[in-house]
Amino acid sequence: MGRKKSFDQHIVVAQMSTVFVQRGFEGTSLDDLVTATGLLRGSLYSEFGSKQGMFMACLKANLKKQPLDDVTWFLLLVAMLELTSNSQAVNEIVSQWYAKQNSPNIATQLGQQLLKYSHILSGDNDNGKRS
């Protein structure tokens, strides 16, 4: 485990995003985030305040920088499955994202991303249908 006192927040957010996507919100422990970032637990708390603060930083950064990337979709799915029902702050982020979606197919897109996230499909490019 590293003991860096200064760090590049963009890199740390990308490292944490990968963990949240792989393990979900509840399934991610602070130990997982400490291991993935190489930072001290205290540094993570000082920078982001809480595990939810860490997740929100990941969600906001990905929505801003790469709104169509799989990581962003998967973080949205994790947020909707685990957080929006009881976290007002995460609910607000996801609600604002949803309100901005112009596509009439947003529910279909979410469904397709859920199928991709679930790893139940034989391939990545079969549009949700088994061949």
Binding site: S29, L30, D31, R41, Y45, S50, K51, Q52, G53
Partner: peptide, 13 residues
């Protein structure tokens, strides 16, 4: 108060 978390590992550090 900045935030709150469940953190099982903190008591092992």
């Amino acid at each position: 108060v900045v935030g709150a978390s469940i953190d099982t590992g903190i008591i092992n550090e």
